[in-house]
């Protein structure tokens, strides 16, 4: 090369290096700020859902304790009414309505905050939720539960429970499925939760941006809190199948 050319060549290489350094700097800052963004997001959804669960727990216990006991008191007062053949029909009807109302209050408060979850564990809470499903829906749900729950942190359980609740609600509301199968297994150091229905399915690509419902969003938010990986397999006519891989914290021994 001519000496002049060598100088130009060095200039070109320098320009190239500057370009390269800029791009590498871009790479590093993107990764750093993205990590911070994700951490903030996780903090935020954690705070939001905790607040929501606290509110729900409060409303549920208010419903159950205040409204529920008032209704029971009315029921007792009705029992104290003197027998009078003129009013017997009305009174019986009132009793039935009140029994109904007591049942509903119990169910609503259980839906809002499953006491069973705290007292007996995740599996019992899920079984109870299924048993409370209306009509012939109970029979559609198959449960296969193969885990021991000691390893699951208490605050993980409510999120797993909500995910199952939301997926089941969707399956019953949209899928027209004959069977809904829930399976919970251990896989390495993770929980593997799969929920499959054989219903109508939907188009993932359309749904990704549709902003229609809150259900799926709730599911992904909970999964983010659990740091779980979500795989959703579906297509029109092909049913819906979810897989959640939920990492467990290392056992403290």
């Amino acid at each position: 090369m001519h000496p002049e050319e060598t100088r130009i060549y060095i200039a070109v290489l320098t320009a190239g290096c500057i370009l390269g350094i800029l791009i590498i700097f871009l790479f590093v800052t993107i990764i750093r700020y993205h990590r911070r963004k994700v951490a903030l997001y996780l903090e935020k959804i954690l705070a939001d859902t905790q607040l929501m669960e606290q509110d729900r727990a409060r409303i549920a216990s208010d419903l159950h304790d205040d409204l529920g006991s008032s209704l029971s008191a009315i029921r007792l007062q009705l029992d104290l009414l003197p027998e009078d053949s003129r009013y017997i029909q009305t009174v019986t009807a009132a009793r039935r309505t009140i029994d109904d109302a007591i049942g509903k209050v119990k169910q609503i408060s259980k839906n809002m905050m499953p006491i069973t979850l705290k007292e007996q564990g995740l599996k019992e809470a899920v079984v109870e939720y299924i048993s409370m499903l209306p009509g012939n829906n109970k029979g559609k749900v198959q449960l296969e539960w193969n885990i021991h729950e000691q390893g699951i942190p208490q605050n993980h359980k409510i999120h797993i429970y909500r995910i199952i609740q939301e997926v089941l609600t969707n399956a019953l509301k949209h899928a027209q499925a004959g069977v809904i199968a829930i399976q919970m297994h251990h896989r390495n150091n993770m929980l593997e939760l799969s929920i499959t229905d054989n219903g109508v399915g939907f188009d993932k690509r359309v749904l990704k941006r549709s902003r229609k419902g809150l259900g799926l969003r709730n599911i992904t938010t909970r999964a983010d809190i659990l740091k779980a990986a979500v795989y959703l397999n579906t297509a029109p006519g092909k049913g819906v199948s979810y897989q959640f891989l939920i990492p467990l914290p290392p056992l403290l021994q």
């Binding site: 370009l19 871009l26 990764i31 700020y33 993205h34 990590r35 997001y41 983010d224």
Partner: peptide
Amino acid sequence: IVWEKKSLQKNAVFLLCIAFLLYYGYKAFL
């Protein structure tokens, strides 16, 4: 940057796009 919630360092699409920036950026220049 907007949608991804897992680490970008191990994200194949992200790595590839950065590689494209480097290579095709320099190539256009030359």
